[in-house]
Amino acid sequence: MRIDIITVVPELLVSPFGHSMMKRAKDRGLLEIHTHNLRDHTPYKQGQVDDYQFGGGAGMVMMPEPLAILLDKLMAERTYEEVIYMTPDGPLFDQRTANMLSLRENMIIICGHYKGIDERIRQHYVTREISIGDYVLSGGELAAAVVVDAVGRLLPGVLNDETSALFDSFQDGLLAPPVYTRPANFRGWEVPEVLLCGDPKKIDDWRYEQSVKRTKERRPGMTE
């Protein structure tokens, strides 16, 4: 998988992709992440990429020309299945979307800033808009990092235990059950006996029951 990220603050994306699973994915040749500084592709002096919005109002808008120049350049080099714009007014990101995106080969992610990007770019280039929550960030970089991490960890070979992702919360429409590790008795707090019984069916049944219970308690809307 190759992901190209368009940003005006590429430095924000160095750390999220330089450690842990994303570093492993890159080192194994399973994931390519390329960041592009939009200021390097603007025809305007001093790296200008934003301007006042028509009609007045507070806040600057990312101009269409720098984005179009860079998008055209990238799209001339390869076919992209998705051009994603990170925006708080997009559909909420969820596990189903992460699963779907993990099947793509090439994607572009546009990180918004200021009041957002010119609407014409959204209309003519963007194929999918994504929000990671009903709140506003300073820019789309951290949101893009969330999406890349959620998608990248699903690529075959990234996780050491390839079945692990199948049992994450939300994969089956339920939250994950409680998990325990050694010691079995910690400060008098004991691990449920069923997890120590050695019977896979009983353990699976218990975990499913706990998932249903936890989902009803914490995310009741998921079970409606």
Rank of each mutant, 00 (worst) to 15 (best):
R187S: 08
Y44S: 04
T181H: 12
M60W: 10
T223Y: 04
G198M: 10
Y85T: 02
L137N: 07
V151M: 01
A68F: 06
I203D: 11
P66L: 00
I6V: 14
G90I: 08
A144M: 06
T7R: 02
G112A: 10
R120F: 05
I132M: 02
D168N: 13
G112C: 08
F170N: 10
H113N: 14
Y85H: 13
M107F: 09
P178D: 06
P183L: 00
M222Q: 03
V191F: 02
T7G: 08
V151F: 04
P200H: 15
G133Q: 03
G29Q: 12
V146N: 09
L155H: 07
P16V: 00
L155C: 02
V158P: 10
K45L: 12
P220V: 08
P91S: 00
L101K: 03
G59L: 06
H36S: 05
R78M: 10
L137R: 03
G133K: 01
I6K: 01
N185R: 12
T215W: 02
L155Q: 03
R182K: 15
M75L: 03
P183C: 00
S102N: 05
A150K: 08
T7D: 11
A98S: 15
Q48R: 15
H36E: 09
E82V: 02
V83S: 04
V212C: 07
R24M: 05
R218M: 12
I121H: 04
M22Q: 11
R24C: 01
L166Y: 13
M86C: 13
P177N: 13
Y44N: 09
P178A: 00
G139W: 05
A25N: 11
T79G: 04
I6E: 07
G29K: 04
Q171A: 09
L67K: 03
L12W: 08
F170H: 15
E162C: 02
E81W: 04
S102P: 07
L142A: 13
K216V: 09
V179P: 01
S164K: 06
A25E: 11
P200E: 08
V14C: 00
D40Y: 11
T181D: 11
P192M: 00
S20M: 02
G29T: 08
V158I: 05
K26M: 14
L12T: 13
E11T: 11
E11V: 02
R28T: 03
I203W: 07
E141T: 08
R182E: 10
P66V: 01
V147P: 10
I3W: 09
M62A: 00
P177H: 15
K26S: 15
Q53N: 10
I130H: 05
G116H: 09
V126N: 05
E141V: 07
T87L: 05
G55I: 13
A143M: 08
E209G: 09
K115I: 04
Q210R: 14
R104E: 08
I117S: 04
L92W: 02
R214L: 15
